[in-house]
Design a protein around this nucleic acid. Structure first.
Length: 230
DNA sequence: CGCCAGGGCCTCA
DNA sequence: TGAGGCCATGGC
């Protein structure tokens, strides 16, 4: 078994299935981790959440999603029509709220022009390019949307991925996004379910042990690690 | 009080 | 193409 597959097995054994991406179920206002197929409305919720969580803790995003649900505006048409100031106020807890308000409305415009049902028919490469053409959507956000909203087998790279795997000695900390992504995609089977779970496990591991000031002493995968802390 | 959080854009060299 | 500033709240 390859090293990255072994790491995956260890993390899965340690933390269990994560049930990503958290979405709001009917009759509720808070997103929950259940896994399973999602509705078109929930696809948009994932897209919005991917934007809102940029450089921000998910806890702060949950509060915003709660408010958006309570105001009944977490839909493409409603985000498109809502006043910028009103939207900014609802998502205040996520930080960068003025920029994110614009980003959400840009995305709603895009999805109004290219409905999700039509985007489903696009090849992954073309869908990725379209998402990246939206202001405020960079590679990580685009790939999160591809993987968690459209179930495309794309590996998501974030700051946690770089931190964990550079400490493990598998990548270099200055490797750019595409290089890290290619490393994972060249060394794992192209399986959407695997990519979904692996990224979620990376986030969990980074939060619990591989924090900025790491917790190597109690880390469950320290045997695999060179402990190359900055 | 400072640091960090499921980034991305813009500018400047 | 790489580094640095900027956006900003909430938890600890």
């Amino acid at each position: 078994m390859s090293k990255i597959k072994r790491i995956y097995a260890l993390l899965l054994n340690e933390y269990g299935k994560q049930g990503w991406w958290p979405v709001t179920k009917t009759g509720n206002f808070h997103p929950t981790y259940d896994g399973g197929p999602i509705s078109e409305r929930q696809q948009f919720e994932v897209i919005a959440g991917a934007i809102l969580t940029q450089n921000t803790s998910w806890k702060n995003v949950e509060k915003a999603i709660y408010k958006l649900n309570k105001e009944n505006v977490l839909e493409i048409d409603k985000i498109k029509d809502i006043k910028n100031d009103k939207l900014a106020e609802l998502i205040r807890s996520t930080g960068y709220y003025n920029q994110k308000s614009i980003k959400l409305k840009n995305m709603a415009e895009l999805l109004d022009k290219y409905p999700i049902k039509k985007l489903e028919k696009l090849e992954t490469k073309h869908l990725r390019e379209l998402l990246l053409s939206a202001k405020g959507v960079g590679p990580e956000t685009a790939d999160s949307i591809l993987l968690y909203a459209f179930q495309r087998s794309v590996f998501v790279v974030d700051a946690y991925t770089k931190r964990i795997f550079s400490r493990l000695g598998i990548i270099k900390k200055n490797d750019d996004y595409d290089k890290v992504q290619n490393f994972f995609m060249d060394n794992l089977e192209k399986d959407e379910k695997l990519f979904n779970e692996y990224h979620a496990l990376i986030v969990e591991h980074a939060k619990r042990y591989c924090t900025k000031k790491s917790n190597c002493i109690v880390c469950p995968i320290s045997r695999e690690c060179n402990k190359q802390i900055e």
